[in-house]
Design a protein around this nucleic acid. Structure first.
Lengths: 245, 245
DNA sequence: GGAAATTTTGACCAGTTGGAAAAATGTTAG
DNA sequence: CTAACATTTTTCCAACTGGTCAAAATTTCC
């Protein structure tokens, strides 16, 4: 039953093709993107706006957020905000760009020459700290992923993939050397991402389930302890003899 | 620097207080929610709408989705859709309600009398299957969480918490019996949720990173194998003597 | 201090969005 | 067949949204 065809959702769904009459002139009434090296005041205001935008975008996603909301959180009028960032997308783009850089830093630091378990442990720890200290960034990222990463598909298909490939190779080497349990390095990385970011992205759920008791900093301490145990034991190379060919 | 106060985002952010002139009459022109036992045709149409709404809401979240989008996906006009669900929120509420029920079923089945490892393994497997077979539901849920679960806070603070408390107790018992590694049962459950749902919520990322190679069904097979290894080894009760007090 | 440049504001616009009303078109039981 | 009911379409609206623009307020630099 229900023979009606259900069309799939597309991405630039309703808005976006409304190009208005902007950009043709670009920088007539908007001096910020000028040749000048960007005043200190401009930098400050932009930071305030980006802060506010992070607050809003991370909760409602791109489409669900409005310039008015961001302007209100930033404590300025909408036209004023638009003076610094002529379009909504630009704000989002800036946030995402800055995010990706910081977000992957811990993985970049993953060191070939280190001890496998030390490296993995400190990676988990750093990711968990990021979830604790930058939950909004984590949610912004999650929001983007949930939506199919329309604005950063290139970034993840190329840069991210390359980085993960590189690190997966390191893990593989360690496994071959018997210093790490033989397993799928990609899924290993996924599981670290998932478990750590969970504490930022599903924060409400975690809080609700843990109740009012263990919820302050302790929450993250416990998580760190648990994850460490899980991964250290789960990945230790068993001296069993059933792996090699 | 930047002494401007940054207001926090509230939830019924901009819209929502626009109550129009609805609800006062309720069911003057909208017969569906009548006393009649709901025709088969009505049921069908509602299902089509809910299907379409799931498609849209799961990607763009509540605020980011529009009735027009849903109507288009459902293959009907907006007023026609509104004939079946007088308001947007109602559609969402219905989806969420149905979701929560199915979503927690695997955890409910967690059996006190089973073998710890069998239970955990099959729980992981079922959750992973759900991520594979119902990714939209997973994303709908994730979207709701990211937004701070404004529409289901009660549900998770009461029902979900109670359920998890109950299962955590079971895990604790097993740990005390030495049948499972002594660890934090709550974070154990979180980590299973996180790792399995990751494959639905961050699907684009997973696909991008894995590349075109291992991506069909194999993706989930590999994930299952990896997670099984991780959790089975990570949670096995080491015969080491360093845990007790 | 004052002209030039920068920043902010207020009024305004066109397109979108959630929803209302009512007319028009089926459907169905008698 | 037709009255009563169910469904769909057309038209319309007010609030919201992203964005413009010119004038006003402020800051900067000589």
């Amino acid at each position: 039953m229900s023979g009606k065809k259900l069309k799939a959702v597309e991405h630039p769904p309703v808005t976006a093709r409304r190009q208005h009459k902007a950009d043709a002139k670009a920088a007539a009434t908007h001096p910020p993107p000028r040749q000048r090296p960007l005043t200190r005041i401009q930098k400050e205001k932009q930071d305030i706006i980006l802060e506010a935008a992070l607050e809003v975008f991370s909760v409602h996603g791109f489409r669900g957020s409005t310039i008015d909301q961001i302007a209100e959180v930033a404590g300025m009028s909408k036209p004023n905000l638009l003076y610094y960032f002529p379009r909504k997308e630009e704000i989002h783009r800036r946030l995402i760009a800055a995010l990706l850089d910081t977000w992957l830093a811990p993985l970049r630091d993953f060191d070939q020459n280190g001890d496998p378990f030390t490296e993995i442990r400190s990676y988990i720890r750093r990711k968990l700290e990021m979830a604790r200290d930058f939950p909004r960034e984590s949610r912004l990222f999650a929001n983007e992923m949930l939506q199919g990463a329309p604005r950063i598909s290139e970034m993840i298909e190329i840069d991210l993939k390359a980085l993960v490939d590189e690190k997966a190779k390191i893990l593989l080497t360690w496994m071959e050397q018997g210093r790490l349990a033989r397993t799928d390095p990609y899924h290993l990385i996924f599981s670290i991402w998932a478990t750590t970011q969970h504490y930022a992205d599903f924060d409400v759920q975690v809080r609700a389930v843990l109740g009012k008791g263990r919820n302050g900093e302790g929450r993250f301490e416990d998580a760190a302890r648990y994850l460490e145990q899980l991964f250290m034991h789960g990945l230790s190379p068993k001296p069993r003899m059933n792996g090699s060919a």
